[in-house]
């Protein structure tokens, strides 16, 4: 598959390396050419210098034939704009956008853009770690709304029926 990533910061570069290691074709777009250093020397994908909110730059990066598109620049507004261009002008099927502001993340979801809000997901993870919750989050899905947890059966709960155990 062919993936286009706009923004080569910590998340963008890490994602690019993951997808590249999985054998996908990856193209990374960033305004700042020095940002591509984060990709390291083993990265086999392509890089394009330019802003991700310009039709011509995205076209040059091959947006017309991309299977997926990710907007992870450091600006929420730029991310939603890039995602809308990808969805509406290039008709890319899978478009994911990072938004730090939770209310706006929710609103953009209603526009049909898959939105990841690391603020909410991160805060919950930190709370659970801080409170030494007796369960570990195993997997977070549906963009942070649903989490699966695992806990070990201890002496207090052994022998009880599930209904009797106190749950979060």
């Amino acid at each position: 598959m062919r993936y286009l990533i706009v923004g080569c910061g910590r998340v963008g570069s890490a994602l690019a390396k993951l997808l590249d290691a999985d054998g996908h074709e990856v193209i990374v777009v960033d305004e700042n050419p020095t940002a591509f250093k984060r990709l390291g020397t083993n990265f086999r994908g392509h890089v394009v210098v330019g802003t991700g909110i310009d039709y011509d730059v995205l076209k040059r990066a091959g947006a017309q034939t991309a299977d997926g598109f990710v907007a992870v620049t450091d600006g929420d507004n730029r991310n939603i704009m890039a995602a809308l261009i990808a969805q509406r002008m290039f008709k890319i099927k899978r478009v994911v956008c990072r938004i730090y502001d939770p209310p706006r993340g929710q609103m953009y979801r209603e526009l049909g853009i898959q939105t990841v809000v690391p603020t909410t997901v991160g805060a919950k993870l930190i709370r659970d770690t801080l409170m030494q919750a007796p369960w570990d989050p195993v997997h977070t899905f549906d963009f942070g709304k649903v989490t699966s947890l695992s806990a070990t059966v201890d002496a207090g709960s052994a022998g009880k029926s599930i209904g009797e155990i106190e749950r979060p």
């Binding site: 909110i53 600006g75 507004n77 730029r78 939603i80 809308l84 609103m107 953009y108 526009l111």
Partner: peptide, 15 residues
């Protein structure tokens, strides 16, 4: 002066 900011203002206003 930033198109992306203007875009979000419009999105919010429409909402």
């Amino acid at each position: 002066g930033d198109d992306e900011d203007n875009l979000v203002v419009v999105l919010l206003t429409k909402k």
